[in-house]
Structures are given as C-alpha cells and as structure tokens.
C-alpha cells in the first residue's frame, strides 16, 4: 500500500465523522435543499475534469475530459442555483400570531 493511499484513507475516515456530525443536524424541513446542495458539492469532480480536458494527453483523454467538464459543470451550476431558488422560498411567518387575533368564543 502506498503512503498516498494510507493518507487518503485517513482523510476519508475523518471526513465521514465530520459528515455524520454536520448532516445529522440538518432538519427534515431542509432535506431537499440539502440533497441538491450537497449534490452540487459532489460536482467537485470538475477539478479532475478540468485537468483531464486541459492536459492535452491524446485526443481521447481530451474529449473525455471535455465531456466530464460539461457534466460536472451542469452538476455544480444547476445544483447551487436550484438550491438557492428553493431556499429563497422558505420564509418566516409575518402574519400576526393566532393567539393575538383569536376570537372570543
């Protein structure tokens, strides 16, 4: 096993704990935006795609890289924008509290 792999496994395990801590605090109210938002984050593969598309290592790699850039960019841009669109719709109650206007009966 290479050192790089051992190091990667460290990062993977620690990130799993961080993920469980952070995600379990997200209320069900926001689970759909959580999915689309985290989905946008998984578009981070774009980083790998950019290098594959730009390195000029043979035609096949370049075209595959470009296809990867397109897919990952749709994932990233679409994901963040649609999450923002959804989150914008979650508004606080501005109407007076029911108690204040309750009828006398």
């Amino acid at each position: 096993m290479t050192d790089a792999l051992v190091f990667s496994i460290y990062v993977f395990i620690l990130a799993t704990f961080v993920g469980i801590e952070v995600i379990s605090k997200v209320p069900p109210l926001l689970h759909t935006p959580l999915m689309s938002g985290s989905n946008a984050i998984s578009g981070i593969t774009l980083v790998g795609s950019l290098i594959a598309a730009g390195e000029g290592h043979g035609e096949l790699s370049v075209y595959l890289g470009m296809a990867a850039v397109i897919l990952a960019t749709i994932n990233v841009v679409g994901g963040f924008l649609v999450t923002d669109r959804m989150l914008e719709m979650f508004k606080q109650d501005k109407s007076p509290k029911p108690e204040e206007t309750r009828r006398g009966n």
Partner: peptide, 8 residues
C-alpha cells in the same frame, strides 16, 4: 467533499 455527500 465526496465523503460528505456520501454520508449525507
């Protein structure tokens, strides 16, 4: 980031 999404 992949792991965060995976756990989520």
């Amino acid at each position: 980031s992949g792991t965060l999404v995976g756990t989520s």
